[in-house]
Design a protein around this nucleic acid. Structure first.
Lengths: 161, 161
DNA sequence: TATGAAACCTAGTGGTC
DNA sequence: GACCACTAGGTTTCATA
């Protein structure tokens, strides 16, 4: 895989217009096709067809709302490293972590810990309670938490470039 | 701050209807106000007014597209712990990390490291290159990377509960 | 195969009660 | 918050390059 987003055959995953459309949608997913079309020099139907195709291809996973955690009282954020007792399957971990609404992301990782769980809570007290519950999961040996002090960058999940 | 999302005065940040609207928008940010209204027993204009109010209040930050990283060739993901030489201001770090399109999130944290930077790259080679560049930033003493093996959970940035 | 133009239908929006 | 009227946008069809 080359780092410019093209496959081995040279066919770009996205042409320049698709990229521009996605960039626009990233900023305003409710923009009209006509508005997007004006920026990419395409008619509204043409934009719609491209968006439909991007959805079919799985490039576009859906459209969501961006919420401000602070405005909703989710003031505390932490990365919880999870150390497992013995070998635990990713499926087991997923099943466990999915049950926590406070878990916004989780993945198995290289290095010392077996998994890193991204937790959002209302308060340090709330965070503590969640971490306690995670630590009490049968497959968890211990955890190590690092609390977020200052958010610096927060971008869409996928880079534009 | 209580953990149920209400303030000290007892006024909920969101009433039940707002929460339902946001939940719907989280799943499909391009849903029509009429469709949303059908689910929350409200007319389309009423839904629109609530959404407008949520935007004004800053609860809704915007609407974005959810892209599949794999479909776009962003196959590699890592958490990079950054250790700074001396004291470095968050503003300095933000300015530096913002310049990397590969950085999808960054924050200062408690614990050993000074910051954690979430990086997405096309390949391990690409990731390596990005980490090298971060490590070469003037304020960075050293870095420690943990590469994501298996994504387990990936949710909207803010919990619904 | 992708597009543009037009037609048609649905949705957004502001005013009124 | 509902209802109405008006405007704007979504979606299909068809012709074209």
């Amino acid at each position: 895989m080359r780092s410019d987003g093209t496959g081995t055959g040279g066919e770009a995953v996205l042409d320049r217009i698709d990229a521009a459309i996605l960039d626009h949608l990233a900023h305003d997913a409710r923009a009209s096709f006509a508005t997007i079309g004006a920026r990419v020099n395409l008619s509204a139907p043409a934009v719609k067809r491209r968006v439909d195709r991007l959805r079919e291809r799985g490039v576009i996973d859906g459209f969501t709302v961006r919420l401000d955690p602070a405005a909703l009282g989710w003031a505390t954020e932490a990365h919880v490293e999870v150390f497992c007792a013995g070998r635990t399957s990713p499926a087991t971990m997923r099943a466990a972590f999915e049950r926590y609404p406070e878990v916004i992301a989780a993945s198995t990782v290289t290095g010392e810990a077996d998994a890193v769980v991204h937790v959002r809570a209302h308060s340090v007290r709330h965070l503590d309670e969640v971490v306690e519950r995670i630590a009490a999961e049968p497959f968890v040996e211990r955890t190590r938490s690092t609390v977020v002090l200052t958010p610096l960058v927060r971008r869409p999940d996928v880079p534009r470039a």
